[in-house]
Design a protein around this nucleic acid. Structure first.
Lengths: 337, 337
DNA sequence: GTGAAAGCGCTAACAA
DNA sequence: TTGTTAGCGCTTTCAC
């Protein structure tokens, strides 16, 4: 009932010209309400589906954007893409998604394909915010937004606010009365690790103790082992991600330390599969990647519509998600900024 | 250097007609090698990018497909989409991806958008193979393939071979000399859980012991607790997914049972974040979702090209991934079917 | 071997 | 208020 029905068919059936039919369906032009309704009804009855390709050709807009991602695991790219899609679907925009697997050749192939398909804009995303994708977006004639990825000078980029997130985490522990707080995190080579550590120190008001290692559960175990070996007994541990936090919580339990009774632990990422499965479930920082995606979608379309958008890095707020690894309740500490 | 350059511009610069330029660039028609090369060189130098929208309009093919997913977490849809994309990118095909969040309205909006954009085919995917998406693909004038999702009668559908995977897992345990093997899995309401349990029984040659519960670590703990309470001491446990397996392994360790010394444990899913972080890392079944995606991509394009494709369910093989939770080495047991 | 011209399905400017 | 017409950028007969 909807195959190969052209506007011309609808027009003929409704006894108007294609021009009028077009206007009737798009709400443009002037005509009697009767005519407009008749055309719309006819179109509906015939199962008419406008050909967006023809429309794109003439309007020079495809109502399509491209999402290039360096995160093929989906940890970051899935929530981002959900947000983007959510923000744009009601404008009739669809999202091309492609993973580039750290391969410059592949990245170029995908990018060219999208450019040829006349996407209205491109969003690039990675799995860490201090590494550029293997991809040059220089000289690209359409808007580009970077979300959760490093970008060339002068780009529009969106990231989660690591400092603010880490500050919230640390202050949450302080608010709970914890005073001997250690920070166990990933490699110092990661910008995020450095930012979070810095914010932790600032919130503490002194140097605290920062332990850099891997972003893994194993490092969480190892870190606790080192702490115990050197006789340190923290009452709060802020971890650089949820995997480390899970390792820490398990290691603590194995040593008979009660979480959250003796030690409060905060994670970072709110990676459901890890945070919710930890015993007790992790209180952690959510980077609100979905909202980041929404904002990226809005921005790229604003740019595509010619609205002026300032280049620069926009850091969106993280929020604390309270589960059970700290004790305390949401209301007992300051809200997200 | 590549903005708004049309074929006409290239043609003029190369001193040929647009028709000739088109043929030169697409390798069609007849002309002197010199002319062809000159046009190609000119196009390259000018940074010409053919407008795929115009091409799609005339060829009635957009070189685009749609991926509708009910799995917004990405556990299944990411590998699937990587596979699809991988199989099709070299045909110049891009993939629209959209999550439908169990929302029929949203699903329809996305589906209509793709249809209007003249996608050449659609792939639908979910997060379990016995639940249909909230979506009717009836009367759709383009090929539809279901991958890892339930589908209406007469559809082309691709799933992982649960029986074969479960058989491999069980036989691996048997091959290791385990004789007292228990199966701890998810709710009986899941088709996959029933299929895997059935295959487990077949491989065992008797009824064994099947414990249905949740797909969670907590259930893994609980199941071991029950086993211990009733005095059962298995030497092998085949788990319905990796999360259960992780719970089982942790619970076993807490009771002083050595894995894999006393008990061998096999998981299902090969979900890296869970399987690799378990101590010891899990030997598990991989559903090869990426390959499933590749096949889905090939199939949908074959259908779009008019090749006859038999409707029905195609079950693709799973494979055993050996880590440390069983002892034994890859060579000691039969290969994947 | 190369060019001219028609047309894919639609929108928008201009006539009537 | 409605219809006519000229394209959007490309491919593809069909002449020459």
């Amino acid at each position: 009932m909807n195959y190969r029905i052209r506007l011309e068919d609808v027009a003929r059936a409704a006894d108007v010209s294609v021009g009028t039919a077009s206007k009737a369906l798009n709400g443009n032009g002037r005509m009697t309400a009767e005519t407009r309704e008749r055309v719309q009804r006819t179109a509906r009855e015939m199962g008419f589906r406008p050909n967006a390709v023809a429309r794109a050709l003439i309007q020079q807009r495809s109502f399509t954007i491209g999402l290039l991602t360096g995160d093929s695991y989906g940890r970051f790219s899935m929530p981002l893409m959900s947000g983007i899609s959510e923000a744009l679907v009601h404008m009739g925009i669809s999202v091309f998604m492609c993973g580039i697997e750290d391969d410059p050749e592949l990245a170029k192939v995908h990018l060219d394909a999208m450019l040829e398909k006349q996407v209205d804009g491109i969003i690039c995303t990675g799995k860490r915010i201090d590494r550029q994708l293997p991809l040059s977006t220089e000289g690209i004639p359409i808007p580009v937004v970077y979300a959760f990825a490093a970008a060339p000078e002068g780009s529009v980029v969106l990231v989660a606010n690591d400092e603010q997130g880490a500050t919230e985490a640390t202050e949450w522990l302080l608010g709970l009365g914890r005073r001997n707080i250690v920070h166990v995190t990933g490699p110092e080579s990661f910008h995020s690790a450095r930012m979070r550590a810095e914010a932790y120190r600032m919130a503490l008001g002194h140097n605290g103790q920062v332990m850099h290692g891997q972003w893994s559960e194993a490092w969480g175990h190892e870190a606790v082992a080192r702490l115990w070996a050197e006789g340190t007994r923290p009452d709060g541990i802020f971890c650089g991600n949820d995997q480390i936090a899970r390792g820490v919580v398990d290691a603590l339990r194995e040593r008979g330390a009660d979480v959250p009774g003796d030690v409060s632990v905060v994670g970072f990422d709110n990676w459901e599969i890890v945070a919710a499965a930890t015993r007790p479930p992790l209180t952690t920082i959510d980077m609100n990647l979905r909202e980041l995606g929404r904002e990226a979608g809005r921005l790229v379309m604003a740019m595509a519509s010619g609205e002026p958008v300032e280049p620069g890095v926009r850091a969106l707020p993280c929020s604390l998600v309270v589960r059970s690894s700290c004790g305390g309740h949401r209301a007992a500490a300051p809200e997200a900024a």
